[in-house]
Design a protein around this nucleic acid. Structure first.
Length: 268
DNA sequence: ACCCAGGAAATTC
DNA sequence: GAATTTCATGGG
């Protein structure tokens, strides 16, 4: 598949800015990963994107949405840049970031794993989760195990992924999703405070993990997750602003700021 | 040996 | 209620 004339999209910036944990960069600069149980390889040539491994129908049904390609990030960046000069700078620093439409359960589970953890280790745990409990698609590439599959396990069964104290949180989340006690597709359309409360019924899910699930898994672009980096950034770079000031695309602003802050630790 | 990591639960004050 | 400690694991 070739998609022509794609603006505001950089593979490395989007896939390695801390919103997703499973994309692998190959030696030639292409990226390979799994979503919706399908392995794809991505390349960029100028403003053209090549997606290997899918049909036209799969592109329209899944991948166009996955990369949020119908949204005009150029206009959004222009509007966000008016809010604050540092936000303008952060957006220009990585102008090719887009917020992915990841699968809700994968996002929820990944950000449960993220708590009090560092990104390389998060990636390792997620990798082992897929390797041990996902379906093998091809050499080195496995699907993300569905909630039903994990719900059938115990915390001890997760020992090989070495998630530590988070193992029982993963199990609790999987069970509540699998049995329908929490319907992530209903959470998608709930009013934001109600949606948060619903996700926080899971042991191990607080406001930050709930907001990450809403932003990255349910594409609620007004959600503005505040982790340690974002709290520092708000205190140092945006002392006069609060998260709600960033508006309906605050989540996109948050991603520019998060990535900019991580790449400039000397600011803090 | 110590400290920290895209937090949240458990405990203590 | 608000502040502090604990929770596995691994890398610096």
């Amino acid at each position: 598949m070739k998609i022509e004339n794609v603006r505001d999209f950089d593979l490395a910036q989007t896939l390695d800015c801390g919103q997703a944990f499973r994309w692998k960069e190959l030696e030639d600069g292409s990226f390979k990963g799994v979503a919706h149980g399908v392995v794809v390889a991505l390349r960029k040539d100028g403003d053209d994107i090549y997606i290997d491994g899918i049909s036209q129908e799969e592109y329209k049904a899944v991948w166009k949405n996955y990369f949020d390609l119908d949204r005009d990030y150029g206009t959004i960046k222009t509007e966000l840049s008016k809010l604050h000069p540092v936000l303008s700078e952060a957006a220009q620093f990585a102008p090719g970031i887009r917020i992915l439409n990841q699968e809700p359960w994968e996002a929820l589970c990944s950000f449960i794993i993220s708590q009090n953890n560092n990104i390389p280790r998060i990636k390792g745990i997620v990798e082992r989760l897929c390797l041990n409990f996902g379906d093998r698609i091809e050499e080195d590439f496995y699907s993300f195990p569905c909630a039903e599959r994990i719900a059938a396990l115990s915390a001890e069964d997760l020992a090989p992924i070495r998630a530590g104290f988070r193992a029982r949180y993963i199990i609790d989340g999987a069970r509540k999703v699998a049995c329908g006690e929490i319907d992530l597709e209903k959470v998608r359309t709930m009013e934001i405070e109600e949606a948060r409360k619903e996700l926080m019924k899971i042991t191990g899910v607080g406001i930050k993990v709930a907001d990450c699930t809403l932003l990255y898994g349910l594409h609620r672009l007004d959600c503005f997750p505040l982790d340690v980096w974002m709290k520092r950034a708000m205190a140092v770079l945006f002392p006069e602003m609060k998260s709600s000031d960033f508006g309906e695309y605050g989540g996109i602003a948050q991603q520019y700021i998060f990535h900019y802050s991580r790449m400039h630790p000397e600011l803090f």
